[in-house]
Write a protein that binds this DNA or RNA. Sequence first.
DNA 1: GAATTGACCAGCT
DNA 2: AAGCTGGCCAATT
Length: 104
Amino acid sequence: MRENSAFSKFEKSVFQSVQKIPCGKVSTYREVAKAAGNERAWRAVGNALAKNPFPVLVPCHRVVRSDLHIGNFSLGMRMKKKMLEGEGAEFTGWRVKKEFLIKL
DNA sequence: GAATTGACCAGCT
DNA sequence: AAGCTGGCCAATT
């Protein structure tokens, strides 16, 4: 990588879509993928968030799996869960309550 | 340009 | 209920 902040169209769409998620709510990788333009690209979405060049601008902790499972997180799932709880979301074990799920 | 990777998903056992 | 398999997409090597 030589250029600074040079991301593909899809990646940018992913980041922007994640930014749209309001506080206290969560969304699924699939919804983000759909908002990004490819509903079948949830895989690439996870990859993009894994890179997450802008953790401050992109609240990746608000994205969970389709099964409502919390999924993974760079800093650990415990951290992710705590952050979401701090925003007002509630959990059932490692699962997010579906009432906190939103559509983009 | 082929092969590998990854914060996934749906289905089957 | 929990674990494994195959399949999907984009980025990276």
